[in-house]
Structure formats: C-alpha cells, structure tokens
C-alpha cells in the first residue's frame, strides 16, 4: 500500500516536470524564418542549403514568392528571373533557362536548372543579334522543326531582353 502511494505521488509530479523540459521540434531546428535554398545545375552548385529569406521563382503557373514554411509543392519553371533575397538584406538575380523547383517540408527549396547565370553576365547586344537571327528562321521557309525551335528561342530571348531592362 505504501509503495502504491509513492508511485501515485510520482505520477502526480510528472506533468510538472514534463512542462519544464518541453521543447518543440521547431525550436531544436533553429530559426524557422529562413528557407534553405539549393540551386544546382548539372555542372555547378550555386547554393547549397544556404539560409535565405525569400526566393521569387518564375513558375509555369505564375510567378511566386517562397518564404519559410511554404506548403510543399513542385513547380515547373519558365525561362525567367529568379530573385533571391539573402539574409544580409541584399538580393541576387539570376536568369534560368527552365527546370524544376521543389518545396520540401521543413523549409527547404531545391531548384534544378540546366543553365543559370547572374543577370549582369548577359549582353544586351548578343541577345539582340540572337533574337534577330531566330526571328529570321521563324519567318523563313525552313522545316517545321526548325521553325518550332526558333520559336522556343524567341520566347527565351524575349524573356532575357525583358529582364535586362
């Protein structure tokens, strides 16, 4: 009977102790207002699970901004500007040629692209020349595949041109 009383006392004491040491997963994982960004190309890793504040991506379904704790989703990307707002308050702009962005649970964003370059590395002159050439092919009398190819190029080049202004 005495032992039972002791056991009961211990049982009563427990909830208090639990409250003192209670700690959520989110706290253990560190600050939750950052998103871990990985931006990878077949030949280069630009970001490797780096903490950033926000990433704006040109999804096929529309431009979207991704913050921490975003709902998990998979987005196909258009050729366009990806805007990365870093912790220090600065922002970086890259142009990517299309690919996929995967928002994973736990504030992780993974972007896979074929080509991705900082906006400063584009030459307005070269874009103009390429655009003129693609337009010539698109309105020419080449094969259907050549014309379709030129039309894709025009779409990409016009997106670059718009982002350089």
């Amino acid at each position: 009977m005495n032992a039972l009383r002791v056991a009961r006392a211990a049982f009563k004491a427990r909830p208090q102790a639990v409250q003192v040491f209670k700690r959520g997963y989110a706290e253990a994982a560190g600050p939750s207002d950052k998103i871990k960004l990985s931006l990878t190309l077949p030949h280069q890793t630009i970001y490797k699970t780096s903490d950033v504040v926000q990433v704006n991506i040109p999804a096929e379904s529309g431009d979207m901004g991704v913050l921490a704790n975003h709902v998990p989703s998979i987005e196909q990307l258009r050729p366009g500007i990806i805007d990365i707002i870093e912790e220090a308050g600065g922002s970086k702009q890259f142009f990517l040629a299309g690919g996929f962005a995967v928002v994973q649970p736990g504030s992780e964003l993974t972007i896979n692209a074929v080509e991705c370059y900082p906006v400063e590395e584009f030459s307005a002159e070269n874009v103009k020349n390429e655009l003129a050439e693609a337009q010539k092919i698109a309105s020419g009398s080449g094969s259907e595949a050549d014309i379709a190819e030129a039309k894709i190029e025009i779409e990409v080049l016009e997106a670059i041109q718009a982002s350089l202004k």
């Binding site: 050729p79 040629a97 370059y117 070269n126 390429e130 990409v156 080049l157």
Partner: peptide
C-alpha cells in the same frame, strides 16, 4: 534549346 539560347546571350 532554351539552355543554348541562354548560353549564346551571355557576355563574350
């Protein structure tokens, strides 16, 4: 095709 267009638009 899109990647090629991007590569050709870069500075020299």
């Amino acid at each position: 095709i899109a990647a090629r267009a991007v590569r050709r638009s870069l500075k020299d």
